[in-house]
């Protein structure tokens, strides 16, 4: 950050310098107040995108289920089980599963193992940046009840308090076969029209946000990351 010609008002000392309100000097010498959290980010509150009815929604759900694009984001030790999934031995492609490098284009996020508070923040960002409908697969006992880190000062115990989870796959760690089974379970759920986690999240946004903010003490991002 270029520190010359930038002034910080006294308030907001708790925010990191990047997100703090500041006054910069414009080209005509005028003062411009910049509030990063308001000026850089969309502050709109999301609305639930309700499913259509009948056969159209069924058809769409079929397509969504048969084309699962997974965000390549490994949160914990479980992410080591993902690459074999795509190898010739397990070949997840045949189920329509593919990896995408950007949350915008992905419909599935896999929480692969323990989740520290710090990582949770990134998970929330990535999850909110995915488009409706989106699905969450939680891998391993750590995401279910904390697993071997159940009494850690820094690792969450229950993922479903922070983001809605569609499928839990138990184990420490689950093998690729188990993950494939989990994908098939997710497909089944979607085809049954039960993959509405994204809308659940938006409908219960306040509860989720309260849980998230309880453990993320330096909440320095907008309430919803579009």
């Amino acid at each position: 950050m270029p520190e010359d010609n930038v002034k910080y008002p006294a308030e907001d000392q708790s925010l990191s310098p990047v997100n703090r309100k500041r006054v910069v000097i414009g080209p005509e010498g005028e003062d411009i107040l910049v509030d990063p959290l308001r000026d850089y980010y969309c502050t709109a509150r999301p609305e639930p995108e309700l499913p259509r009815q009948g056969i159209i929604e069924k058809f769409m759900n079929w397509a969504r289920a048969e084309s699962l694009w997974v965000l390549g984001f490994g949160t914990g030790c479980g992410s080591i089980e993902i690459p074999p999934l795509l190898s010739p031995r397990y070949d997840a492609y045949r189920f329509g599963v593919a990896m995408r490098p950007t949350p915008r284009q992905s419909s599935v996020i896999i929480i692969s193992g323990y989740l520290s508070v710090k990582t949770l923040k990134r998970v929330i960002r990535s999850y909110e940046q995915m488009q409706n409908p989106k699905f969450v697969i939680a891998l391993g006992s750590c995401t279910i009840n904390g697993g071997m880190y159940w009494d850690s000062y820094n690792t969450i115990n229950r993922l479903d308090h922070y983001i809605p989870v569609d499928v839990y796959i138990a184990g420490c760690m689950p093998r690729p076969e188990a993950i494939l089974a989990g994908f098939n379970k997710l497909k089944q759920r979607i085809k049954e029209g039960r993959g509405e986690g994204a809308n659940d999240y938006i409908k219960n946004l306040d509860w989720y946000k309260a849980n998230q903010k309880k453990i993320i003490k330096d909440w320095n991002m907008p309430d919803y990351n579009w």
């Binding site: 279910i144 904390g146 159940w150 009494d151 969450i156 115990n157 229950r158 849980n211």
Partner: peptide
């Protein structure tokens, strides 16, 4: 701390 904070299942 964990029990108070992280919603033990």
């Amino acid at each position: 701390y964990s029990e108070e904070t992280y919603f033990p299942r």
